[in-house]
Design a protein around this nucleic acid. Structure first.
Lengths: 238, 238
DNA sequence: CTACAATTCGAACGTTCGTTAGAATTATGC
DNA sequence: GCATAATTCTAACGAACGTTCGAATTGTAG
């Protein structure tokens, strides 16, 4: 949960830079902030952003109320750090997994699989991202919105590629938003004790989205060729 | 927005029944409560349940803070009344629209269309229903959950019918929840100035869900027969 | 008009909220 | 060990929260 940020107090009056700044990556400061962000994610996830109090977070971290404010300047910034980091990472990982995959259908399937894998691996953070979608105001909100738009754009282009390559006809906007609905809604229902893992869910949702419920037989027929292709892609990206 | 409820104060010490209770349907009391619920829906929609204050609601209704409490006993009960009423109505309307439609595919399409029509006709209330899904605790939460389970069960049975009738193979749970994702997510994106109306959206989402993106041509081929069938159903139910 | 019920209100209750000032403590470089 | 920077704390701030009390006002039946 590493997020770029710097200490606020470097000598209470003069703002001096830390001499020999220790790599920032895993400085004590950074590690503590990460720990706080992790607890904040949990608290926001359970009580909601508005419903969670700084005192809840103080209890969860075992740190005093004032002590927390050494690491950030407002509750809103906490949410911003969580959302920005989570969203940046999912886009980053998507980009990595897409390199080397050229078949348009497989690229859509990679998108779905990446989303669900990230979602289930960081379920709490992704719930906070999805559920507190419009909780941030002004500057912070705008910055997260930029990443969101980028993510949307990538998905839209994947579907447009598929459309062009296969000569299909569908409304891209509706398709993108339907797909986002399918894969984001998971935060309301997924139960690790009942439901399949991310790869299986991705396959199932990909089948529904691409082939539809009513083409199960067709899916069956195509599946051996698809699986071969899939194995090739997985070697390249996993 | 009519919801069953009764005045709290009928003589401050003895709880007498109102003589000749005026039909309850559109008594002054009921009309005022409905007005409050409508404003509360708007306020909860914009600020979120936790983020909305009773003072926001006081401002929105033009009624004093204390005056509001003549009509209900807590903020939580307000949310409960909104959710229960909204959810009951959508189930009710679904039942009506399903009677007389026997083709399993068309029954699924009726479900989707009913959901989206109700959603867009009561967008604010549905957002409050979807977004404040787990905001209610204990008794109130349990009661709304009962209706939710019933709605889920109906959808599940529609898909099971389709599966049996067409000899298809898919995981019903995953299909139901994917469908719910598609049709509920709409509250995060629908813009009446850009997007189609409920019937068109329902057709598009139904096509994706049932036929898949990649069977646009097949959809085309089947479409004339489908449209004829669809027209028949609509005469029966609209 | 009178009497009484229904409705609305101003003013406050006690609590919790996000945030901060300033002192106390801990780690670090010499 | 001494000085200085980094970290954490106790205690409180003013504002906003959901809710209630008791009085004032309004509608209504006789």
């Amino acid at each position: 949960m590493q997020v770029a940020a710097k200490p606020r107090l470097l000598g209470s009056s003069q703002a001096r830079a830390r001499k020999l700044a220790p790599a920032a990556e895993d400085s004590r400061y950074q590690r503590q902030l990460d720990k706080i962000l992790e607890h904040a994610t949990e608290v926001f996830c359970v009580r909601g952003y508005e419903g969670a109090s700084m005192r809840d977070l103080s209890r969860a971290t075992g740190m005093s109320l004032a002590g927390l404010y050494y690491y950030f300047d407002s509750k809103e910034k906490l949410l911003y750090l969580i959302q920005k980091h989570t969203f940046s990472r999912i886009v980053e990982q998507l980009r990595e997994k897409l390199t080397g995959v050229s078949d348009p259908e497989q690229r859509v399937r990679v998108f779905i699989r990446n989303h669900l894998e990230y979602f289930l691996a960081h379920q709490k953070a992704m719930k906070v991202l999805s559920h507190e979608d419009d909780a941030l105001k002004n500057g912070y909100g705008a910055e997260v919105l930029t990443i969101k738009r980028e993510y949307y754009r990538i998905c839209r282009e994947l579907l447009d590629q598929l459309k062009r390559a296969s000569g299909l006809q569908f409304e891209t906007r509706l398709a993108v938003l339907s797909l986002f609905g399918m894969i984001n809604w998971i935060y309301t229902w997924h139960n690790p004790r009942v439901d399949a893992d991310a790869a299986a869910l991705a396959r199932g949702m990909g089948d529904i989205f691409l082939c539809g419920l009513m083409n199960a037989e067709e899916k069956q027929r195509k599946s051996s060729a698809q699986r071969a292709q899939r194995r090739t892609e997985e070697k390249q990206n996993l």
